[in-house]
């Protein structure tokens, strides 16, 4: 029953208000808070600059079990200045971590694609770190029709 009510909540959209009515408010906020903590840990408390990061995701994911994700960073990949890490965080999953990619100048391009699981309609946040210690970030909202974290 718990799962059902959760899906019902998702159908209403991921607005905080909808969750309050169904008692999921705390969990939704807990997930977003955990996501923010994971990002703060990654940046060492620095604020990431908006931009340079592009995220390709479907606008509406019908099946949350496998959602194609492509990330890229518009930054050089030279020996002394390159994107060294790209972290992907899902704000609305039971665990916000999705993946962290480690790149080197041999990567040639700062990009990666994979397929991810999304439990609900949510924001995907990507934070990129350069070898010079700069941080860039971007986010994208995905609407998920059927959640994909089992249950």
């Amino acid at each position: 029953m718990r799962q059902l009510s959760r899906r019902a909540a998702l159908a209403l959209g991921a607005g905080g208000a909808a969750f309050t009515a169904l008692g999921w408010n705390e969990n939704a906020f807990a997930a977003a808070k955990e996501a923010a903590e994971a990002i703060a840990k990654f940046t060492g408390g620095k604020t990431a600059t908006q931009g340079k990061v592009s995220i390709e995701l479907p606008e509406i994911a019908e099946n949350g079990n496998t959602v194609p994700l492509a990330v890229s960073v518009a930054a050089p990949m030279t020996a002394d200045n390159y994107v060294s890490e790209i972290m992907v965080v899902a704000e609305g999953n039971p665990n916000p971590g999705v993946a962290t990619f480690h790149l080197t100048p041999l990567s040639g391009k700062a990009e990666a694609s994979t397929r991810i699981r999304l439990a609900a309609t949510q924001n995907i946040v990507v934070v990129a770190k350069t070898s010079k210690g700069e941080f860039f970030t971007g986010q994208k909202l995905v609407k998920v029709t059927i959640g994909g974290c089992g249950g």
Binding site: N95, V98, A99, F101, T114, R115, R117, G148
Partner: peptide, 16 residues
């Protein structure tokens, strides 16, 4: 890539 359970079954990776 360090992967979490949020990676879909049959993990697919594309990179350069």
């Amino acid at each position: 890539a360090n992967l979490e359970p949020a990676i879909a079954a049959n993990p697919y990776m594309q990179f350069s």
